[in-house]
Design a protein around this nucleic acid. Structure first.
Lengths: 215, 215
DNA sequence: TAGATTGTTAATCGATTAACAATC
DNA sequence: TAGATTGTTAATCGATTAACAATC
């Protein structure tokens, strides 16, 4: 099988959304071209890295000129698989789940929130920011009916693994976990884990180290 | 100046909170000892990495036995600077800001939410989950009065950089940015940037790649 | 042609991991 | 002593970056 692109390094994939955001901004400001220098500055990385990263997608720049904003935005979006929408379901309708449901960034960027799912009968049937809350018993049906591609876990830690198992079993394509617990999914199912407290603890470490070196 | 520990690699620092979480769980289940093998399993990494990471903190295990859960939890917590609380202020009282304010995980883990700050007069004076909303004009006062250590930015993208500048100017120690824009802070100010849409886009990439290889 | 900027090379740096001696 | 498991070494792998030839 001929591959169109060589495999793109993980570190590069993680930066593509950052570049894309910068490109959207440039596009909105009607910029035609952008140099790796400028793109690097907007993305908080160095220019060599930008060029190397973009070179994995193909050869889309023009020497002496830079990159065509429109065209590069298209190519980056395509590489990220953002040509079509990926409906998401949020499992767990607590505070975090509701906030995520209401986060315009998701729908805006091609990830419509198709359903909120909860285990609490009292929440089921309600509508949060225009999204209906369904009972977790219907999880499998919803995935099929609504064509859910991504499951977002916003449950308490104790429920997260079981939910992940059910999502995968139901045929979900990838999982984003916000519960403060490490979960596992079968090989080949993309998984990202984001823990808000972890981020604060990392800051705490560096804060403390700075304080120590100031003394 | 004699350093107690050699510098701990960034990748290791980022994993310490994960190990800590596993240790808390073990502690709650009254486990006395834990092997690197078990800790690795709970943390979703491999055992050699756990041992290497922990070795940067010191030599706290016992060959043939494993690590004392209590003692290791203490050492990891200390390394992370979690002996004392770090009050945080959340700037931006929109959906995300309010959800973060209500996230029990923060206070529970030593990061009490001391203030919510917003630019909208209509929100100021209200109380969200027991936390008063202050006007952004008072940002500098609040940082000083409440001893805010960490500023959490949950504003729209357009306001984020200016808020970061003011937080730093006011003497904040580190910044956690949730706004979907790259911001910069002076060297030496720890900064973490979390973008929810970025996470979804990374999943989209791998999802698409899986779909391509299935074909 | 002169100036600008990409795409790629190669050196360097940091992170991961298997293996095993040390030691409980 | 036998079995278990750490702490550390060294090999390997992947990511970063400076430098520059290619080329607009």
């Amino acid at each position: 099988m001929a591959r169109r692109t060589p495999t793109i390094p993980e570190a590069t994939v993680a930066r593509l959304p950052i570049y894309r955001r910068a490109l959207v901004e440039l596009d909105e400001s009607s910029a035609i071209n952008v140099s790796s220098e400028r793109l690097a500055e907007m993305s908080g990385v160095n220019a060599a890295k930008v060029r190397k990263d973009l070179s994995y997608l193909g050869s889309y720049g023009t020497r002496g000129v830079g990159y065509d904003v429109d065209y590069l935005l298209f190519q980056v979006s395509r590489a990220l698989g953002l040509n079509n929408d990926w409906p998401v379901a949020i499992v767990g309708s607590g505070n975090l789940g509701q906030a995520l449901a209401n986060y315009r960034g998701f729908t805006q960027r091609g990830f419509p929130v198709a359903a909120l799912i909860d285990v609490d009968d009292k929440k089921v049937g309600a509508t949060v920011h225009g999204i209906e809350v369904h009972h977790v018993d219907r999880l499998e049906d919803l995935v099929a009916e609504l064509g859910i591609a991504i499951g977002i876990i916003a449950t308490p830690a104790g429920a997260a693994q079981a939910v992940a198992d059910r999502l995968v079993e139901a045929g979900i394509q990838s999982v984003l976990n916000f519960a403060p617990v490490v979960i596992s999914v079968p090989d080949g199912v993309p998984l990202r884990q984001v823990d808000l407290a972890t981020e604060l603890q990392i800051l705490s470490f560096y804060q403390q180290r700075n304080a120590a070196s100031d003394r």
